[in-house]
Design a binder for these strands. Structure first.
Length: 250
DNA sequence: AGTAGTGTTCGGCC
DNA sequence: TGGCCGAACACTAC
């Protein structure tokens, strides 16, 4: 569920609720006051990276699905929802997620140019952020939500494979063309992810993530937990190039 | 049946 | 003060 494209799918799936008025909010969340939503009309749904926003006139709810979160539209899972909005002709149910009230308007809080799925995404801005942290490993940089909001571990692994880059490269060690390509493919793969997820063929299209053999070289992928993020990383030592002088210890 | 993981925050420790 | 680490959260596919 949780990477950026999945949140875009959710946003598209709930469009029918825009303009509808909440009869009552329920749920076992302790983070917000459920009474706030009674009689509030949904003005919009937004997303920023992995954040899903439900916008009312004066307040906005932020849902983050973390690793295990899920949702149901006009049905329920049969377990108590963390947060639920009841309308006279429908309902939205959210499970095992983080629920928060936004402390201000979305435009004040979010840098839309950092969201790889957003129309306002700005590759140049990402480039400047990466250049400002030249020593950060690219396996960590891809997961940095301030640079690539919406990119998660699957997208990370696939982007590194597509661009033939070793996860332990630093940004500054990359040739200029690879720097640009890394940023471009973070966006390209995110939109491929979106398309394949809608077709229910995402997994089938994985080339590196959770795979054991490199499809280019027919050798086993390395599986490690590198960098500060220590997230599961699959890479091929033959085709994914390292440009630094000394390969860092994992 | 047990385990690992599409993620993030927080508190403790050095 | 700050960086690092582990725990917590809570679900389910394999």
């Amino acid at each position: 569920m949780p990477e950026g494209p999945s949140i875009v799918i959710l946003k598209e799936a709930v469009q029918e609720f825009i303009g509808k008025t909440v009869i009552r909010a329920e749920g076992n969340t302790k983070a917000i006051d459920l009474d706030l939503f009674e009689n509030q009309t949904v003005v919009d749904f937004k997303s920023w990276g992995k954040h899903f926003l439900i916008c009312f006139e004066h307040i906005t709810v932020r849902i983050h699905f973390m690793l295990f979160g899920s949702y149901r539209i006009n049905e329920s899972k049969g377990v108590p929802p963390r947060f639920s909005l009841k309308f006279d002709d429908g309902e939205l149910n959210f499970y095992a997620c983080s629920v928060q009230l936004l402390n201000g308007s979305p435009d004040e809080i979010y840098d839309w140019s950092a969201d790889v799925m957003n129309i306002n995404w700005d590759a140049e801005s990402a480039y400047l952020k990466l250049a400002a942290y030249p020593k950060v490993l690219i396996c960590d940089a891809l997961l940095d939500q301030n640079i690539f909001a919406g990119v998660g571990n699957i997208i990370k692994n696939e982007v590194l494979f597509r661009t033939r880059l070793h996860p332990l490269n630093t940004f500054s060690d990359l040739p200029e063309s690879s720097k640009r390509e890394l940023i471009e493919e973070a966006v390209n793969y995110s939109f491929d992810f979106l398309r394949w997820k809608k077709e229910f063929t995402l997994k089938k299209h994985w080339l590196a993530h959770a795979k054991s053999i490199c499809p280019r070289d027919n050798v086993p992928f390395k599986k490690t937990y590198p960098g500060k993020t220590k997230r599961r990383t699959f890479y091929c030592e033959i085709c994914q190039r390292f440009y630094g002088s000394v390969l860092p210890e994992i």
